[in-house]
Nucleic acid binder design. Structure first.
Lengths: 246, 246
DNA sequence: AAGTGGTCTAGACCACAAC
DNA sequence: TTGTGGTCTAGACCACTTT
């Protein structure tokens, strides 16, 4: 019984068995798997072991479980393929697709920038920054939490523009007359969900998060927005095409 | 005892306690946390509950555990910041950094393309494709598994070039005289590690994977390589800068 | 009422590190 | 030898769904 970082022989065997079971029996989306009790008895092991295998298979997007109903073969995910364009905002790209798409403003606070934000936004550490929390959904399913940080000095009386919130870019252009913000850099990370992610995105704790950090500029202001998107890794893929220029 | 997707009140409370404990006691990298037994007794609960909290904190990169030693505050990760350039190959970008960097060829096989690869590489489904598996490491720590798929027709006698493997681009340019391959698109995904990821990257099963899928072209051949990088999410961040052109 | 998955408790054994 | 984290077993209760 060699132990290899959380995946030992027993569990690997059961994992392979289930994958093979799905294949051999030609199971497809929504088809039911044997229950945890059944598998535990079959492999002369405990239900907890089966559960840990199910958890990992669920994290890999192969199965999903429903309380009281059972475990099922997951759908061949048709995830959102977010095609980045550094001349466009998040909501503009999302709206250019065919899916319906909703933004909900969760909170708005004002904080002082601190060392990190002051560096990214080229302001003083003590400068005030507006912080917005927005949840984005398609087809009624929340898929991303977006945080925006905007220097107070560029967006005076910001609160007045928050009724009927649609997008930050919309406020910057319509409310303040700035030119279209442009993305100057993206950093992309895979991380585990925080309790807030789990809460707002309604995901189990195994689903990884695809995080994008971006800085936006306008000609008039220089850096105007630091933008963090935390999206469900299983529902949201980031794509980028390169055309003519090397 | 409301149950909210795997994170209930009890565990949330313990999670917050530990985060606060680190802060209040000014613990930093490598400092020891109370043992699982201690915390279990303290919260009048079972060690398994503490373990599940530790697992999640570890996945978030806040703590790490060592068998026989204890749980410790994790380092402020200095992850590899991979700065993408669509005119450069993976190993070229990696080598332009200051870290030492090693590629190890794990396997080479020939397969038929199938529907997906044939579409990406613009070949027939039955065409042969060379498949390479390479593990990349820095400072002795493997951080990424890379898979390359190259159409046989563009790289005849490919095996002959695999001794002293350094990089695919190197083979294409030095071995076949092609111009420098150019990346035409990237798709980035966050996913759970597969058993192979866990095996080759020596990671626990909670660490998310940052996956990059890329297509490379040369002027002479058109699409020449389909390239998949599966990197540790906690050690590898993807960055991209946009300069002059909108 | 019976079965399912989600959670928890209590206790065991192991490999490993420290004393 | 003792304490640690990693794994496993056995059994319990819950919320939920189906019969």
């Amino acid at each position: 019984m060699t132990d290899d970082n959380n995946v030992n022989e027993t569990r690997l065997k059961i994992m392979k068995y289930i994958k093979l079971y799905i294949k051999k029996n030609h199971l497809s989306e929504g088809d039911r798997l044997p229950s945890q009790n059944t598998l535990a008895a079959q492999f002369h092991t405990d239900r907890n072991v089966i559960r840990s295998v199910f958890t990992q298979l669920a994290a890999q997007g192969i199965i999903y479980t429903e309380k009281g109903r059972g475990a099922f073969v997951a759908s061949k995910n048709r995830p959102i393929l977010f095609e980045h364009d550094n001349g466009m905002g998040f909501s503009e790209i999302m709206n250019s697709g065919t899916r319906d798409y909703v933004s909900n403003l969760i909170s708005h606070t004002t904080i002082s920038a601190g060392s990190y934000l002051s560096r990214m936004l080229e302001i003083e550490e003590t400068d005030l920054v507006h912080s917005l929390l927005v949840v984005r959904s398609t087809d009624g399913i929340p898929f991303a939490i977006c945080q925006s940080f905007l220097p107070e000095k560029h967006v005076p009386d910001f609160e007045k523009h928050l009724e009927n919130f649609f997008s930050v870019n919309h406020i910057l252009m319509e409310g303040y007359g700035y030119s279209h913000p442009v993305c100057s850099q993206v950093t992309i990370t895979a991380c585990a969900p925080t309790p807030d992610d789990i809460k707002y995105l309604h995901i189990p704790s195994q689903v990884p998060i695809l995080k994008q950090n971006e800085v936006f500029y306008t000609d008039e202001t220089g850096p105007i927005e630091y933008f963090i998107v935390r999206a469900r890794g299983d529902k949201f893929h980031f794509k980028m095409k390169f055309s003519e220029n090397t």
